[in-house]
């Protein structure tokens, strides 16, 4: 199995909206490499014809009826907002 590189970690960090300094990248890369090396043992398992489990339950068709339920008040919706303006959540310039 291919070993994880510092560039891989940087790329993945970007996808996850995280950012690390060079030293941290190095540390994380070596920790991840060790973990991924361990979990790679699953590659020795023959899973031909085996379906992946995405739901362990044998449950299907769970629906709601299209009935209106009470929403929270605007004040409550905005209660935890780190920054707000004009009844909305304010975010910095989108780049």
């Amino acid at each position: 199995m291919k070993r994880i590189s510092k560039d891989d970690v940087k790329h993945v960090a970007e996808l996850a909206e995280l950012k690390f300094g060079e030293k941290d990248i190095e540390k994380i890369t070596s920790q991840l490499d060790r973990i991924l090396d361990h979990v790679a043992n699953i590659n020795s398992v023959n899973t031909e014809g085996i379906q992946p489990t995405s739901h362990i339950l044998d449950i299907k068709n769970v629906f709601r009826e299209d009935m209106v339920e009470e929403s929270v008040t605007q004040e409550f919706a905005l209660k935890n907002a780190p920054d707000e303006a004009n009844d909305g959540f304010k975010v910095p310039k989108i780049d």
Binding site: M67, V68, E69, N86, D87, F89
Partner: peptide, 19 residues
């Protein structure tokens, strides 16, 4: 529909924000 895809909030048509 009367309500949203995954919750019971009603759909909005240009009303006040976040209600």
């Amino acid at each position: 529909t009367n309500t949203k895809m995954f919750c019971g909030c009603r759909l909005s048509f240009g009303e006040e924000k976040n209600i």
